[in-house]
Computed example of a mutant assay.
Amino acid sequence: MPPLLLASLAFAGCGSLQSSDSFLGVITPYRMEIVQGNVVTKEMAAAIKPGMTRAEVRNVLGSPLLTDIFHADRWDYVFTIRRQGAPYQQRRVTVLFDGEGMKSFEADELPSERDFVASIDTRSTGRVPKLQLTEEQLEALPIPAEPVVAGTAAASAPEGPTRSYPPLEAVR
């Protein structure tokens, strides 16, 4: 077979491998997770009100991903994530200012915090972890020991067995 024909077949085969998600349906290449920008949720958007200062908006949303010296009254928050096993996500939020106060807020449809976490969780078991103990669990906890206050008899008593050590220098 001529070398030119062999080389063209090899390159054609490489191109088809790169366009598929797996090789022969068995081997899946590693895809690096790419997260860029600020996550802005419905809860964060609800906390922003017209008239807020730039510092207040930055405290709620974080620093903007894009600022432009030619459009100083516009902040753009762009968020993208590519994660293996999760759908690609991209959202844009624009905050417009009039001087130091916020004038308007424009955004794509924003997820709630719970929906966002569920959308990127690739190992989801469908269970939501409990973040607070029930009354029965609180009552079953052991009672903590009383804190030792400096200057009391309990604080000055040594803990554990006492040891005697030989002197560090020879006695003359």
Score class of each variant (00 low, 15 high):
S119T: 13
T67A: 04
E135Q: 06
A107P: 07
V93E: 00
W75D: 00
R74A: 08
F97T: 07
Y88L: 04
S63C: 00
V78R: 05
S112R: 11
G85N: 00
S119E: 14
T122E: 11
E100I: 08
V149E: 08
P158S: 10
R58D: 09
D76C: 04
R83H: 00
A157D: 11
E159L: 14
D98I: 13
L61I: 02
E146L: 08
F70S: 07
S119Y: 15
D115G: 14
T80E: 07
N59W: 11
A154R: 14
V93M: 04
G85E: 01
R92M: 08
A86Y: 01
R127N: 15
E139K: 14
Q84I: 00
D98V: 13
P111G: 02
E135A: 10
G101N: 15
A157W: 05
I69T: 13
D98N: 15
V148D: 14
E136H: 06
L141D: 03
E113W: 14
A86N: 06
R83G: 00
L133C: 03
F79E: 09
V93T: 04
G62Y: 10
A140S: 10
R83F: 00
E113R: 12
D76R: 04
F116L: 08
E106G: 14
Y77H: 01
G101P: 09
A72G: 10
D76S: 06
S124W: 02
T94G: 09
P87A: 01
G101D: 06
T80N: 07
L110P: 02
R74W: 02
G99P: 06
